[in-house]
Design a protein around this nucleic acid. Structure first.
Lengths: 257, 257
DNA sequence: ACCTGAACACCGTTCAAGT
DNA sequence: ACCTGAACACCGTTCAAGT
């Protein structure tokens, strides 16, 4: 939305640096990235190949390379595009803890909406224009909350990593493909997050754990029922409670020095 | 080490269930898995293909399928093998917090020793024999610490996810390939973790952030120096401090009810 | 019970040649 | 400045055929 021309690309960006980018309808960098996101949303990470994407756009795979350099470069752009969906509020110093939790919740929702995105983000330092604007706004909240510079940056990096660690488990089971793609499930497609099959998986885990030999696994067999408790929302809230409270405690201890 | 025959495989295990497994030297499930781990340690995740692995073992790719079912099944076994390296101490109720932190530190070290393992673990519920024994012992520590059943299981799952989220960032930049494989670095291969190039990356990030327009990125440009502070050890300690302390606080609050 | 070669249906990427 | 077809060097997996 804001002018990207003011932001020079980072030196490690895997993109061809060519200037004048005319907009012939069928194909352009923007069109390619949007088509990639649509394809990923619809069919998951495994369905995205340069050939398949080109077909979707009515061209050959080779034509994409002029615009996005490589598949890796395309994924950089996809990641930044999805990050661009995130809205971060203006800092309200009195409410920085709750604002930070909202940021975490929004990140989790985005990761569930695009179940392939956490996997794409692995190995990529998000430094596209949208990622920069996003970081700027989250860090502004932390600074407004009174966190000193180092703690603000460390806390920001750890928050993102923590949420990613959580959502990897949530989105991992389905391999990034949308629910209901397989032929095993009936017409009861339960939408994003697929709670029905997540509960099924938890029940299977419980039954299996309960069936283990009691002498070798005294603790686990006793806890089998708890593995069937798969309320991801509650677990996520617990995680960000622990994290944000701990960060606030550090900030307070830091201020006392 | 312990007899696996007492532990039935989970129903979703992607392996062919065949019984008598004679040990003709060149090829066996164990030999395949060990060779895969060696290849992965040496050349990273991208280097592992069924053809390449078979070549390493002096056979054709098709021969592997009888023993491991599929590449996915092989990765299940690789994951369990690496988890089997982990040693978890007997529970000491008075020291459960420190023991849990040690578990987290050991998990991080294993992930740095095998930089591909976190990526392999995505989408896999570790339920192999080694994973079960591991879970049993960690949960025993949490229960000995006085955590009620639900909190013990939730805390265990969140601890693993949190450590994974952290180590994904640490191992992500190099794509799981060992340091010094590329031809850009000199003979100064800095061993696992590759601190030299990690610091380089942090410095590049700092310089780039510092170069951004100050009016659009007032917060980030002011924090640029902090992005060059790449002490992953310190950041990790902060993370597990926050997490374990928060978990203990929850346990105490729970006990008061 | 195990191994094999050959084939099928894919990949990402390059490159000379076009317009 | 952009697009293309064809090729290169790979993939995971299957399957009939062997021993």
């Amino acid at each position: 939305m804001t002018a990207n021309s003011q932001i020079p690309p980072p030196p490690w960006q895997r993109l061809p640096d060519r200037q004048a980018r005319r907009r012939r309808e069928p194909i352009s960098q923007e069109a390619i990235v949007s088509a990639a996101v649509r394809l990923l949303d619809r069919e998951g990470l495994a369905a995205l190949s340069m050939r398949r994407l080109a077909e979707e756009l009515g061209t050959g795979a080779a034509s994409l390379y002029w615009h996005v350099g490589s598949k890796d470069g395309l994924l950089d752009l996809v990641l930044d595009q999805v990050i661009g969906e995130g809205q971060v509020p203006d800092p309200d110093p009195a409410r920085w803890r709750e604002q930070l939790k909202d940021v975490a919740r929004a990140q989790r929702r985005a990761s569930l909406r695009h179940p392939y995105i956490v996997r794409i983000s692995i190995g990529r330092i998000p430094m596209g224009p949208n990622a920069l604007r996003y970081s700027e706004r989250v860090l502004a909240i932390l600074r407004a909350g009174g966190l000193p510079p180092r703690l603000a940056v460390q806390g920001y990096l750890l928050l993102i990593a923590t949420v990613n660690g959580f959502t990897i488990d949530e989105t991992g089971v389905t391999d990034g493909a949308p629910a209901g793609t397989g032929d095993s499930a009936g017409p009861d497609s339960a939408g994003p997050g697929d709670p029905a099959s997540a509960q099924d998986a938890a029940n299977m885990a419980r039954d299996y754990i309960a069936s283990l030999p009691r002498d070798l696994f005294p603790t686990m067999t006793g806890l089998a029922d708890e593995f069937a408790f798969a309320d991801a929302d509650e677990r996520f809230e617990m995680l960000i409670d622990i994290f944000v409270d701990g960060l606030a405690r550090r900030a307070a201890a830091n201020a006392a020095t």
